[in-house]
Each structure stands twice: as C-alpha cells, then as structure tokens.
Amino acid sequence: MSRSATAGTPRSGGRPWTFYVLLAVFILYVIGLYAPMISIYILSFQDVRGGLVFPMKGLSLHWFVDLFTQVRTGDVKGSFDRSIRLAVLVTVLTVVISFLAGMAFRRRYFGDTAVFYLMIGSLVVPGLVLGLGIGLTFNFLGMRPSWYTSALGAQLSCTLPFGVLIMFAVMSRFNTAWEEASRDLGASPLQTVWLVILPILLPGLVAVALFGFTLSYDEFARTLQTAGTLNTLPLEIWSMTLNVTSPALYALGTVTTIVSFVTIGLALGSIVMIQRRRAQRIKNEA
C-alpha cells in the first residue's frame, strides 16, 4: 500500500503518515459497516432458485412477492402496519414529553437528580427484563398485554430517556437572552414558548422524532414480552430468522431498511430545509 512508503517520513506541508493509516482504518470501518447490509439487499433480488449466499441466482422480485403473499412467512403485512402505527404514536409522545422534560431540566428543581437517575436506569435496564416486568404487572392487574398499551409503554421507557438526553444537548445551545427579550417585549410565557422557543428548537425536535420513530420501529427486546398476541415487525423478523431459510428474509430486510432510510431522509431533509430558510431570512433582513 502507498501509505507504507510514506510511513515515518513526515513531509513538511504534506499530510502526516498517520493520516493515511487512519484513513485506511476509517475506510475499512465504513466497508465493514455497509458491506454486509448491501450484500443482503442485493441477494434479496434473486429469482426462485436463490439461496442465502452468493453467487446471485437470477434477478427478480420473486421474494418480495413471496413475502407479502405467502402464509408461511407469517403476517408480514399486518405486523408492518402495526409497527408503523406504533412508531408514529411513540414519536409523537416522545417529542412532546421530551420537550417538556427538557424545559424542566433547564433549571434546577427539587428532586431533579432523582428524576435524571430514574431516566438513566430506565435506559440501561436490560430490555427483556423490563418486558418481563411489564408483562407480569399486566398479569397481576388482570390486563391483557397489547402492542398499543404495554408495548407502547415499554418502548417509551427507552425512547424518552434518549429523547431527553438529546434535548439536553439541544437546549445547551439555546441562548436564554432570546427568551428574556421576548418577555421584555411583552410576550406571555405561552407565547414565548410557542413563538420563540419552539421554532428555535425545531431542528432538535426533528432529531428527537427521528430517534423516537426508528428506535420504536426497530425495537425488539422490550417488545418481545409485551406485544401480546399480535406481532410487530421486528418480532416477525425474529421468528423468521429462526424458521425461514430463503431470501424472503433478506427481502424483508430490504423493505424495512427502505422504510428506515426514507425516515432518515425526511428527518435530515427537513432539518436542512429549516436551516436554509433561516439563513435566507437572515440574509433578507440584512
């Protein structure tokens, strides 16, 4: 490799040899990160002869059709539907509750440290343990676990701490002078929140929404014991990894990743758009 030729000879003005070593580390990391994922996307487009490994056998959408029509691959359509609904529900609740909690944590209040540690505990507790606990609680109370009650709560127990931690980072960049200015100009507290704080924090809230949606949509360990009789998509994928040995599994991987990528694209795209509009407005006023 070319980097060995430059090793140990730092040229003045050029890049140090460490640059090339770390560049190699970085490239290897990115390849390691993406190569496996890309290979299953490619393999999911095989035809009916397809297997789990390369070489590609044919090119078709056979396994995607198989996925949504065959009964033996389980209720993919239904679980997909439920996962999306649940993720939307989790996203909305996560954004609202994390925003409020973030506002609370801007100042010290009695017991804030306890609440903070409670949140960290909820984040690091093993997912299956929490799921088991919620399942047993519902059992004791004589309630049936279902995806929109127990699984919703189980997922919020991990998305909320995440969301609040992101709010900490977002709020630390918030200059309180803007808030004071708004108050000095006669805005009510509610107006200050709605017209000043919220618009400024909007990109951060989009980031919270992105985390909320994707964490919920892919959540597995906490949902396993709490979803009740109807599966969410990751649970469906899980049972497929244990039973299905056809590229249908990869096809499902491709479909769910497309949904994730669309979500990421929407979130990052809207953050960029908000920033650009802001820059434009500042330019216009100058």
């Binding site: 909690a101 505990g121 909820s122 606990g133």
Partner: peptide, 25 residues
Amino acid sequence: LFGWLAVSPLLLVLIPFFVVPFLVI
C-alpha cells in the same frame, strides 16, 4: 412547581412502565 409540572408526563410513563414493573419482578 414548574419543574415538576413539566417533568410529570415523563414520570407518568417511567413510573408505571419502569418503576412498578421492576418492583413486581
């Protein structure tokens, strides 16, 4: 008062879905 008011929705989730389940376990 404001702190507790704003953080109460968070607690309304964490208590039934983290504290109580752990106590049940």
